[in-house]
């Protein structure tokens, strides 16, 4: 009798209209709000990126390092980071998958690999930050009006032409090639190296601010995700979920982990590609 009245009265509590547990549903609602937060950040980035498009640095001029390889390698390192994060997402799905089959050892193995992937990603991000903060060997010059110009060495091919003297590049692709103007601008300039919250050798300081804020906020998500994964991993080893009879905690933390991957897919596109 009591079960019938429970089922007929869906909103009386005790039933699951979404056929999802409370914890999973709340994780989803949290992720939805987090998605709105990140779209706010990336939207603000897009606003500045197109508002100041003529002096906005191009990511391919900024992130050109790859460990062990000399010279410019645009996009390669961040592509590797993306690969690592997608890979760790896959290991997480496999952990959830084996959790549903109550396969304790396999859940533990895949969970462990997920943690390793997350740790490698965090290390890569730290490396990228380090290079961004330290900047290039040659640095840039900050002109009297505050704009930042990169000195292009003589002999480099620029828009199909080569110059036998140093020229300046402001922003992504505004080149100054008149000799007198260059020496005039250089006289009233100062050298800057690397990027921080105030100056940015690659262009507008707002680019550096957005970079630190968005990738930092995402990196903090990855960091807390790794911590959560470690806690769940220890619980798996202790057999907590075996005793509980289900591995739903792995699924919940898995949702969070996939969300971190999802955000990175967008950060990768809007920060590094566009």
């Amino acid at each position: 009798m009591s079960t019938i009245s429970k089922e007929s009265n869906v909103w009386g509590g005790g039933s699951k209209p979404f056929d999802a547990s409370y914890g999973k549903m709340m994780m989803w609602f949290f992720l939805l709000t987090d998605a709105l937060t990140f779209s706010g950040f990336l939207g603000a980035y897009g606003f500045c990126r197109f508002k100041y498009s003529e002096s906005w640095p191009l990511a391919e001029h900024v992130f050109t390092h790859f460990p062990g390889i000399k010279g410019d390698q645009p996009l390669l390192y961040v592509a590797l980071m993306t690969f690592i994060l997608i890979m760790s997402s896959v290991t997480m799905v496999l952990a959830v998958h084996h959790g549903k089959l109550m396969n304790k050892n396999k859940v533990a193995i895949w969970m462990f690999l997920t943690i390793i992937g997350g740790a490698i990603f965090l290390g890569s991000q730290a490396w990228e930050w380090m290079h961004f903060i330290h900047g290039t060997h040659d640095g840039s010059i900050q002109l009297a009006d505050g704009s930042v110009a990169k000195v292009i060495n003589s002999g480099e091919k620029i828009m199909g032409k080569t110059y036998d003297y140093e020229i300046l590049r402001i922003g992504a692709e505004k080149y100054i090639t008149e000799k007198d103007l260059i020496s005039n601008l250089k006289e009233n300039s100062k050298k800057i190296y690397g990027a921080n919250m105030i100056v940015n050798e690659y262009g507008l300081p707002q680019f550096a601010n957005f970079f630190f804020f968005i990738t930092g906020f995402h990196g903090f998500h990855v960091f807390s995700g790794v911590i959560l994964n470690i806690i769940i991993f220890i619980n798996i080893l202790f057999g907590t979920y075996e005793r509980r009879g289900h591995y739903e905690m792995v699924e919940k933390v898995g949702l969070y982990w996939h969300f971190v991957d999802l955000v990175w897919v967008f950060v990768f596109t809007f920060f590094y590609l566009i």
Binding site: F18, D19, V90, E251, H258, V265, F266, F268, T269, I274
Partner: peptide, 25 residues
Amino acid sequence: IILTLVKAYYIIAYFMHVKHERRNF
């Protein structure tokens, strides 16, 4: 943008299992 949205769809639908949730959810 289109490729990113396609990737996002696959992550949400398959990795996050949304495809197998109830429609109202």
